Amino acid sequence: MGRRYAAGHDADHSDEEPPAEVTYDRRWAGDLRSSIRCSAALLGLLLLVDWGADSLTIVRGTLWTGLALLLFVVLYPARVTAGEGWLASRGLLRERRVRTDVLVSVRWLDGVSQRLRLRDAFGGRVEIKPQVLVNNPDLWHRLDADARKSDACGSLTCGATALRQISKQIDRERASTVSKVSDLN
């Protein structure tokens, strides 16, 4: 172990690199506020209509509150974070984590809402919205760098197409942003 001195204090440190920064979804807080506003608006509207019809009771108010809470649970955004070698998605009840430096597959799931499923060599799985990566270039760069490591070591057997799709979508988004900012539209 090497001895280093920092700010007048001595401390023992190994010769390892300092841990890489953790990257967060920058739009998560705004998405959370939106889900709260939608739920509150629904609750307010239901209570107002019931009150206006003179049919508001404690039971109906409780029912409307439960419905608004259910909407909040459905709309609650997953908080996506990433660091060197990992990506995590935290929902309301639990966090799912995947090792991005040993990815086995990356799959694009279509449906009502598009999802990206990442699976690692240890069985970890995470599903995230591709828009999160489009909106947060730092998250994308972290995932892309680690996916390239997985591909280089041979663990990534399925997913090159999905990663190319996201890369193209991010490139289109950047071009659109540059165009808007420079008034070329």
Rank of each mutant, 00 (worst) to 15 (best):
R4D: 06
R4A: 12
R4C: 08
Y5T: 15
A7L: 15
G8F: 10
H9A: 11
D12Y: 12
D15C: 12
D15P: 03
E17Q: 11
P18N: 11
P19F: 07
P19K: 09
A20H: 06
E21T: 08
E21F: 00
T23Q: 04
T23L: 07
R26T: 15
R26D: 06
R27A: 10
A29C: 03
S34Q: 06
R37H: 05
C38L: 02
S39L: 07
A41S: 10
L42F: 06
G44R: 10
L45H: 00
L45R: 06
L45I: 14
L47S: 06
L48I: 08
V49L: 12
A53L: 15
D54V: 06
D54T: 10
L56C: 02
T57Q: 03
V59H: 02
G61W: 03
G61A: 15
G61E: 04
T62P: 00
W64R: 09
T65C: 11
T65N: 00
G66L: 15
L67Q: 07
L67M: 11
A68P: 06
L70Y: 11
L70N: 03
L70G: 14
L71H: 01
V74T: 10
P77I: 13
P77L: 07
A78Y: 03
V80W: 01
T81H: 00
A82C: 07
G83M: 04
E84P: 01
E84H: 04
G85V: 07
L87G: 04
S89K: 04
S89F: 01
L92M: 14
R94H: 07
E95C: 05
E95K: 09
E95M: 07
V98A: 04
R99C: 04
R99G: 02
D101K: 05
W108E: 08
W108I: 06
L109K: 15
L109D: 07
D110V: 11
G111I: 13
G111W: 09
G111T: 09
S113E: 14
S113W: 10
S113T: 15
Q114E: 10
R117S: 13
L118M: 13
R119E: 14
A121M: 10
G124M: 10
I128Q: 04
Q131F: 00
L133I: 12
N136F: 08
L139Y: 08
H141P: 00
L143N: 09
A145K: 12
D146I: 15
D146W: 05
A147D: 05
A147H: 07
D151S: 14
A152I: 06
A152G: 00
G154W: 01
S155G: 07
S155W: 08
L156N: 11
T157S: 12
C158W: 13
G159D: 06
A160M: 13
A160V: 14
T161K: 12
T161A: 06
A162F: 01
L163S: 09
L163M: 14
Q165C: 00
I166E: 00
S167M: 01
S167F: 01
I170W: 02
I170N: 03
E173R: 14
R174K: 13
A175S: 12
A175E: 13
S176M: 09
S176W: 05
T177F: 01
T177C: 02
V178N: 09
V181Y: 02
V181L: 13
N185W: 02
N185M: 03
